[in-house]
Simulated assay, not measured.
Amino acid sequence: MAVTIKDVAKLANVAPSTVSRVIANNSRISESTKQKVREAMKQLGYHPNFIARSLASQSTQVLGLVLPGSADTFFQNPFFPTVLRGLSEGAHEKQYALQMTTGQSEEEIYDGIIQMVQGGRVDGIILLYSKVEDKVMMYLKERDFPFVVIGKPFKYADEITHVDNDNFRATKEVTDHLLNAGHDRIGFVGGDLNLVVTVERLLGYEKSLRKAGIPLRDDYIVHEEFLREGGQEAVKELMTLENPPTALVVADDLMALGVLNTLNEMDIRVPEDISIISFNNVLLAEMSRPPLTSVDINIFDLGYQAARNLIQKIEDPREPVKRITIPHKIVERSSCTDVKFGL
Rank of each mutant, 00 (worst) to 15 (best):
D7C: 04
V8T: 10
A9H: 08
N13T: 10
A15D: 10
S17T: 05
V19H: 03
S20G: 10
R21L: 09
I23V: 13
N25F: 09
N25H: 13
N26M: 14
T33R: 08
K36Y: 01
R38W: 06
K42S: 15
L44M: 09
I51D: 08
A52L: 02
S54Y: 00
S57T: 15
S57A: 15
Q58T: 10
T60K: 11
L65M: 11
G69S: 14
A71F: 11
F74D: 05
N77I: 12
F79R: 01
P81F: 04
L84Q: 07
L84D: 06
R85T: 09
G90V: 02
G90I: 00
A91N: 03
A91V: 00
A91Q: 09
E93R: 12
E93N: 05
E93G: 05
E93C: 03
K94A: 14
M100S: 10
T101G: 08
G103P: 07
G103M: 15
Q104M: 09
S105L: 13
S105I: 10
E107P: 07
E108P: 02
G119R: 03
G119D: 00
V122I: 14
D134L: 04
V136N: 14
L140R: 05
K141M: 14
E142Q: 15
P146A: 10
P146G: 07
F147H: 09
F147P: 13
K152E: 11
T161I: 09
H162R: 08
D164F: 04
D164I: 14
D164G: 11
D166M: 05
F168P: 12
R169T: 15
N180W: 06
G182S: 08
H183I: 05
H183E: 08
D184Q: 12
D184S: 12
D192A: 11
N194Q: 12
L203I: 01
S208P: 01
G213C: 13
G213E: 13
R217Q: 04
D218Q: 15
V222Y: 03
H223Y: 07
F226N: 12
L227Q: 13
L227W: 06
E229G: 07
G230S: 02
G230I: 06
G230V: 02
A234E: 14
L238M: 05
T240P: 04
E242T: 14
A247Q: 00
V249M: 08
V250P: 07
L257V: 14
N261Q: 15
N264T: 12
E265C: 11
M266Y: 15
M266R: 12
I274M: 10
I274K: 14
I276M: 00
I277P: 14
N280G: 06
V282L: 04
L284K: 03
A285D: 01
A285K: 13
E286D: 04
M287Y: 10
S294Q: 06
S294L: 02
D296N: 09
I299D: 00
I299M: 00
L302K: 01
Q305M: 09
N309F: 09
K313V: 02
I314P: 14
R318W: 09
P320G: 02
V321G: 01
T325E: 15
P327V: 10
H328R: 13
K329V: 03
E332W: 10
V339F: 05
G342A: 15
